[in-house]
């Protein structure tokens, strides 16, 4: 379904790499491997380099988005308030790493820079909701609120 995007570009032109990645992400919400292969063939750049570029920029996603998106702020103010622990706890609880989505597609975990809510640091943003001054202990409660399907088996790494 992404084949059409190539109509707007010249083959073997490295400078179209990033625009093409953006186009694919607009279609699927993330960058599926087969689309990356097609881009690699079209632009004439090895797949590994395409993937390298895609993982270098935060704007690109390599896995599909979950139903809920959790953004952990790692800005300075939050950092001072131990946001690293919050991230670590979330990764543990969800059994995924930042940038990944749980196997049941319930949660996607992301890391962001300052989201302008420093006064209530440390902050996480779940979908549109800010959760401020949170501690590691609050995490299960917060997750439960968004979890729709009953957790039968534990969420696992998607890749």
């Amino acid at each position: 379904m992404h084949e059409k995007i190539f109509e707007n570009y010249q083959p073997n032109d490295r400078s179209s790499l990033i625009p093409l990645l953006q186009d694919v992400q607009n279609i699927y919400g993330y960058l599926p491997e087969n689309a990356l292969r097609d881009i690699s063939d079209f632009v004439g750049v090895p797949l590994s380099r395409v993937y390298g570029v895609a993982t270098f920029y935060n704007q690109f996603r390599l896995t599909p988005l979950g139903k809920n998106i959790i953004r952990v702020c790692r800005g300075t103010a939050c950092h001072v308030k131990n946001s690293a622990n919050i991230l670590y706890a979330l990764e543990n609880e969800l059994k995924i790493k930042a940038g990944e989505t749980t196997r049941d597609k319930q949660f996607t975990l992301e890391v962001v820079n300052c989201i302008g809510a420093c006064s209530i640091a440390p902050v996480i943003l779940v979908n549109e909701d800010y959760h401020g001054r949170i501690t590691v202990k609050d995490i299960p409660k917060i997750l439960k609120k968004y979890q729709t399907i009953k957790k039968t088996d534990k969420a696992e790494v998607t890749e």
């Binding site: 750049v45 090895p46 797949l47 590994s48 993937y51 993982t55």
Partner: peptide
């Protein structure tokens, strides 16, 4: 061949295969 490349950045940076 180009089987491996730098991916991600900063501390997370790693030389690896696609995906």
């Amino acid at each position: 061949i180009g089987a491996i490349d730098f991916t991600k950045r900063g501390f997370a940076s790693i030389v690896t295969t696609p995906y």
